[in-house]
Structure formats: structure tokens, C-alpha cells
């Protein structure tokens, strides 16, 4: 049996930052190559970096959200690229704006089929949300770490809401030990 923790894979990291000044997105969109700006569709300007792959959403207020990165390092890397691009347009950006990771989405695999019905009863109906008519996954909200886990019949799971990569590991540990306690993991 492989350790489910080894199957943990970060799928998406969302972080936010800001350059502390308002922007005229229309002119930024003109000068910045590869920028998408369609205020009818979305109020922010979308700038995609290729390496590492991610998308930065730049807003009029000067706040920037970076999404789509596969690791926290990638987030910092791609935001550095964005800052450099903005500096090229002679927009003042301080040396090291604070970058806050808002959400990390990870996936993992428990390696065997799950009986979600039994798990729903075992974990206590008040702690979970399982509506197979609406969504095939079982939603399990953990208090510590404060994340939300989606468990699927295939044994795969998605952990979202974590602020650092460690949260996902703790959550997987907690879930496997809870399920083992209940004898639902074999």
C-alpha cells in the first residue's frame, strides 16, 4: 500500500498582491503585449505568463490576483514577471510587494474505492454534505486544518481552502486516520 500522502499533487495556487496605485487599465492593455481586457466581460485585465504557466488578473485598484500556478514558488516567479512588465511600462512598483497565498487546491488518491454512504453515516451526517442527486462527491469540512475535502467513490479526493501546502498533508492524514478508525478503508 502506498502512502496517500505521496499522491498529493498541487493543482492550483491562488495568491493576491497589489502595487498600491490605481491603474488605467485601458492604456495598460494597449501597451502590454498579450493582455486581455474586455470590461464588458470581466472588470479586470488578464495577463497570462507562459513559464511558469499562470494568469494574473490586474484590477483598476492596483490589486493583482494570480491564479493557475502549480506551486507557491511559481506564484512568486510569475508575479515577479508581471511586476517587471509593469515596470517596463514605467509604472512604479515597489521592490517586493507582499504576496499572500489565498487558496491552494490539491488532489490526492486513497488508492481504493470508497463507500460514500457508509462514510457519510460514519463521519456523522452533521459534519458532512453528501447529496448524490446533486453532486457525486462527499463534502467534508475539517476544522483543523480549516479546509474542505471532496471525497469521491473512486477513492480520489480534492482538498481546497488551504493556505499552505502543509494543510493538505494534515488533512489527508486526518481523513485517512478517521476512515481507518471507522474501518471504512479496506
Amino acid at each position: 500500500m502506498t502512502d496517500p500522502k505521496e499522491t498529493i499533487n498541487i493543482e492550483n495556487v491562488v495568491a493576491s498582491t497589489g502595487i498600491g496605485q490605481e491603474l488605467d487599465l485601458q492604456s495598460v492593455a494597449m501597451d502590454l503585449e498579450g493582455a486581455d481586457y474586455d470590461p464588458e466581460q470581466f472588470p479586470g485585465l488578464v495577463y497570462r505568463t507562459q513559464d511558469p504557466k499562470s494568469a494574473a488578473l490586474i484590477f483598476r485598484s492596483g490589486k493583482i490576483v494570480c491564479t493557475g500556478a502549480k506551486s507557491t514558488d511559481d506564484v512568486h516567479e510569475s508575479l515577479r514577471i508581471v511586476f517587471d512588465k509593469l515596470r517596463e511600462l514605467s509604472i512604479k512598483v515597489e521592490d517586493d510587494p507582499e504576496i499572500v497565498v489565498q487558496n491552494i487546491v490539491t488532489s490526492a488518491d486513497l488508492g481504493r474505492q470508497l463507500n460514500l454512504n457508509a462514510i457519510a453515516i460514519g463521519l456523522g451526517l452533521e459534519n458532512i454534505e453528501y447529496e448524490p442527486e446533486q453532486f457525486p462527491g462527499l463534502v467534508y469540512r475539517l476544522d483543523d486544518p480549516e479546509v474542505v475535502a471532496l471525497l469521491f467513490g473512486s477513492g480520489k479526493l480534492v482538498i481546497t481552502g488551504g493556505k499552505e501546502p502543509k494543510d493538505a498533508e494534515h488533512a489527508v492524514d486526518k481523513i485517512t486516520s478517521r476512515l481507518e478508525e471507522l474501518g471504512l478503508l479496506d
Binding site: 474505492q113 470508497l114 463507500n115 460514500l116 454512504n117 448524490p132 442527486e133 457525486p136 462527491g137 462527499l138 469521491f152 467513490g153
Partner: peptide, 13 residues
């Protein structure tokens, strides 16, 4: 099907 465990996550209807 329930004993076989293929009903997990499938709509009961």
C-alpha cells in the same frame, strides 16, 4: 450493486 460498492456518488434516482 450496493454490496459491490458501485453506487457511491451515483444519483439514487
Amino acid at each position: 450493486a450496493q454490496a459491490d460498492g458501485v453506487t457511491s456518488g451515483k444519483s439514487p434516482v
